[in-house]
Amino acid sequence: MKWFQTASLCIMLVLTGCSSTTKQSSQWIYPPMAVPLQSTIKQEVQIARLTQLLQRSDLKDEVRAKMFYERGNYYDSVGLRDLARLDFNQSLALEPAQPDIFNLLGVYFTQVGEFDAAYEAFDSTLELDPSNSYAERNRAIALYYGDRIDLAFEDMTKHYQDDPSDPFRALWLYIIQYELDPIEAQQALLARYESKDESWGWVLVALTLDKITEEQAFKAVLTSSRDNTLLAQRLTEVYFYLGKRYQLVGDYANAVSLYKLALSFNVFEYVEHRYSFLELGRIFEEVKAQRLAETNAKKMSESSEKSEVVTQ
Rank of each mutant, 00 (worst) to 15 (best):
I11A: 11
I11Q: 13
I11T: 14
M12F: 06
M12S: 09
M12L: 13
L13P: 02
V14L: 13
L15R: 15
T16A: 13
T16C: 15
T21H: 13
T22G: 14
K23F: 04
S25M: 06
Q27E: 11
W28H: 10
W28M: 14
W28A: 11
I29M: 15
P32I: 13
A34D: 03
A34S: 03
P36D: 12
P36G: 10
L37S: 09
L37Y: 07
T40S: 03
T40A: 02
K42E: 04
Q46Y: 10
A48H: 03
R49W: 08
T51G: 06
Q52L: 13
L53M: 14
R56W: 02
D58W: 07
L59P: 07
K60N: 10
K60M: 10
D61S: 08
D61N: 08
E62N: 04
E62T: 04
R64I: 01
K66I: 02
K66H: 07
K66P: 01
M67A: 10
F68L: 01
F68I: 01
Y69A: 05
Y69R: 06
E70V: 08
R71F: 07
R71K: 09
R71N: 11
G72F: 01
N73V: 14
N73M: 15
N73H: 13
N73W: 13
Y74R: 02
Y75H: 15
Y75F: 15
R81T: 15
R81D: 14
R81P: 07
R81A: 10
R81K: 15
D82Q: 07
D82H: 03
D82K: 05
L83Q: 05
L86A: 03
L86Q: 02
L86S: 02
D87T: 01
D87Y: 00
F88K: 00
N89K: 04
N89M: 05
Q90K: 01
Q90W: 01
S91D: 01
S91T: 00
L92R: 08
A93P: 05
L94F: 14
P96M: 08
Q98R: 11
Q98P: 03
P99S: 12
P99I: 05
P99D: 07
D100A: 07
D100W: 07
I101A: 06
I101D: 06
I101H: 03
N103K: 12
N103A: 15
N103V: 09
L104P: 03
L104F: 08
L105D: 13
G106I: 08
Y108V: 02
F109Y: 08
T110A: 05
V112D: 04
G113D: 04
G113C: 04
E114Q: 15
D116H: 11
A117E: 14
A121F: 11
F122R: 14
D123S: 12
